[in-house]
Computed example of a mutant assay.
Amino acid sequence: MSTIIVIGGGIIGLLTARELAQAGADVTLIEMGTTGRESSWAGGGILSTLRPWRYAEPVTALVQWSQRRYPELCGELFERTGIDPEHSRDGLLIVDVPDPAPALSWGREHEMAMETLDGSAIRAAAPKLVHESECALWLPDIAHVRNPRLIKALRRANNRAVRIREHQEVVELLVSDDRVAGVRTHTGVHHAETVVVCAGAWTANLLEQLGRPPAIAPVRGEMLLFHADPGLLSRIVLAGEHYAIPRRDGRILFGSTLEQSGFAKTTTAEAKELLHEQATTLFPMLRRMPIGGHWAGLRPSSPSGIPYIGAHPGIAGLYVNAGHFRYGLTMAPASAHLITDLILGREPILPPAPYGLDAPR
């Protein structure tokens, strides 16, 4: 039985550890803080890229494989743990699409349901929305999950199959004769035959000691949560760069910002004011709703948004699964399955070349 260490306890690390353990590997997951409390917790949980026709094919391939897997995964986790990730196929309404032809062509090519709506149909789809749009796109099959619950369910499901070590920061990757030998944390050394780095925005810092780190950098995103009544919003709405996501209990998430701030994860009054202004302009009824939360997370950006999934080119036994930018949750099932295929020598679910650490992006 192979001994594997997974570094990072976000959605990518948790699902990677789960896939490896289910395949029979002896897995330890090491997380510098609390599992699932970074970008996996901070995001909105939309299981799609926001304008899918604009993304590179390697991103689309991961997203579509994951979209097919998510209903079954959420059902498995609910049955096993009693925690409902709230997979909800509410659909995505994109209200500012002046030229829908490229999107519709992309939708036909990728077999994604997509249709145009005019002014009256837009108002019928989102009665509380105030927006001057003559043409919108409706994607009825797009779903979202309640990401904190998904993370909690995964953490509980992994309890028996994976050793989870929280609040242990990996400070060094141990290498001997160009082969990984384990990791060093503040509390000691952990030996392993294989190490998988799933450290999100912190991945490049960890790999820098070995040279040629991937081009992954943190991008801060801030979100607002409104306490609203159930039914006020029944679908995901995207307008410009901002989106609103309904939860089953009536809460509405509104996001997000894109801020180059290094590893500073603090929220700002400016971002809160901007998000509130945008939210209440699009949905005036939110002016009467109390703000239930304001938080920030650090997304692991990468060139063209294409994550790094594969073996380190110079160190045997060292793998990377990181750099998913805004869509770690969206691409997680496929990414975890693909890296497990590569580690165990199985037939990969997708051609792995575009995700290699040296692949052009």
Rank of each mutant, 00 (worst) to 15 (best):
D84I: 02
R156A: 14
A215S: 13
D26F: 04
G9H: 11
E222F: 02
R248N: 14
D141H: 09
T3S: 15
A217M: 10
E169S: 11
G231F: 06
A192G: 05
L232H: 12
G345R: 12
P98M: 12
A269G: 00
P85E: 11
H190V: 08
G297K: 07
E347I: 02
A264F: 00
G255L: 09
W41G: 03
L275F: 09
D178S: 15
A296K: 10
V97Q: 10
A336F: 00
L318N: 09
P218K: 11
T35K: 08
Y308I: 05
R248P: 00
S176A: 15
A204Q: 05
L232K: 08
R299N: 05
R220D: 12
D358Y: 03
I12S: 05
G75I: 01
W202I: 06
A192R: 08
I164K: 08
E79G: 15
A21Q: 11
G310L: 09
G107W: 09
E111D: 13
H186Y: 13
L253K: 07
R18G: 04
M223H: 05
S335V: 01
A21E: 13
R288W: 02
L275M: 06
R299T: 10
H276Q: 12
L137Q: 11
A113I: 01
A181P: 00
T267L: 04
V195P: 03
L224F: 03
P98K: 14
A21N: 06
H294D: 12
G314T: 11
E72W: 03
V97D: 09
I236A: 05
G82K: 08
P333V: 12
S301P: 00
C198K: 07
V196N: 08
F283D: 06
D341M: 02
A215H: 13
L14F: 03
G314R: 11
G200I: 07
V97G: 04
T281G: 12
E222T: 04
F325G: 01
H337E: 15
G221H: 04
N158A: 13
L15W: 03
R220T: 06
F283Y: 14
E169M: 10
L286S: 07
Q260Y: 04
P85K: 10
R108F: 01
R326S: 01
A279C: 02
A125E: 07
Y243M: 01
P213H: 09
A125D: 08
I4H: 11
L154V: 02
G314Y: 11
A126S: 14
I151E: 07
L50F: 08
N205F: 00
L233F: 03
A316C: 08
R165Q: 13
T266V: 05
V189P: 03
E134W: 02
L93I: 09
V130P: 00
L357E: 15
L350D: 03
K152P: 00
A322V: 03
